[in-house]
């Protein structure tokens, strides 16, 4: 009995420590008072002014566009690369895996600066497209990382079976192999999307003067002092990621239920 209570207490403490900062943030986003340690009553004022702030809205739009585009493109390239690597012989495949893993382990600042240097060296104007290219670059390894294990699990014979039953190689891939690796592709896309949303350092080095994503915008704003709008913005980001996760988890649950029927 005591053990049970102690266990529950322990778990509660962990959750509290994990989520207390976010909870504080959410509470503050509804705080009428601008002070961080005084409750001045409930308000939606910060949310309203947030949506009226064109700069922030533009940054949000840019962030989402870059996250979406870079995730989509990285997913396509990464999935294709995984398929190619999967059919390689063992030694070249291990080497390729190593090569694709390095950018993930590399410090963001190094990746950021080297990308910037590259763009400058080839006279590529920094701006929206350079940020997009940079995001695609650092997203590809994450896609490969989540697609590869799925591909290795799939029975190689299913592709051959589809060919055997008369499907063209293209059709066999999309009807049989792709549905099999779909969960890996989706989680790769999600991972890439999140990484892109999350990124500050690489964006910071590869963006031009006019381009701002949310993270670079928040950074610029906080240098002038943190405004309550930022709490509201961060709360919205947190809630959307949370919703996304819930949706994906439920989807996976219903798939596994259908399977075990």
């Amino acid at each position: 009995m005591v053990k049970k209570i102690a266990g529950k207490l322990y778990v509660s403490l962990i959750i509290l420590f994990l989520y207390a900062p976010i909870l504080v943030l959410i509470v503050l986003s509804f705080n009428k008072s601008k002070s961080r340690n005084k409750w001045g009553g409930f308000t939606l004022e910060w949310y309203q002014s947030l949506f009226k702030n064109d700069d922030i809205m533009t940054a949000l739009y840019t962030t989402l566009i870059i996250a979406f585009l870079s995730a989509i493109i990285a997913t396509i390239i990464g999935t294709a690369a995984s398929i190619g690597m999967n059919s390689m012989k063992k030694v070249p495949r291990t080497i390729m895996m190593g090569v694709t893993n390095i950018p993930m382990l590399n410090a963001d600042i190094v990746t950021g600066i080297s990308l910037m240097l590259l763009f400058v060296a080839v006279n590529y104007t920094l701006g929206f497209s350079s940020v997009l290219l940079a995001h695609i670059t650092f997203n590809i390894p994450y896609v490969i990382l989540s697609v590869m294990p799925r591909l290795k699990q799939t029975n190689k014979n299913t592709y051959e079976a589809a060919l055997d039953l008369g499907a063209s190689p293209m059709k066999a891939f999309f009807k049989v192999v792709f549905p099999d690796i779909m969960p890996g592709v989706i989680s790769g896309f999600m991972l890439a999307f999140t990484m892109s949303l999350d990124d500050f350092i690489i964006t910071h080095f590869t963006r031009g003067a006019g381009v701002n994503t949310l993270s670079t915008k928040i950074y610029a704003e906080t240098r002038k002092g943190i405004k309550p709008e930022m709490y509201a913005l961060s709360t919205l980001l947190f809630v959307s990621v949370l919703l996304l996760l819930v949706i994906i988890n439920r989807r996976n649950d219903s798939i596994s239920k259908k399977r075990s029927m």
Binding site: N157, E160, A161, A162, R259
Partner: peptide, 20 residues
């Protein structure tokens, strides 16, 4: 001739059913 154009069918050792 590629397999999809041959008039024969194969049963594979590990069944190779389409699980989805």
């Amino acid at each position: 001739l590629p397999p999809n154009e041959r008039q024969l069918n194969t049963v594979f050792q590990k069944y190779a059913l389409f699980t989805h």
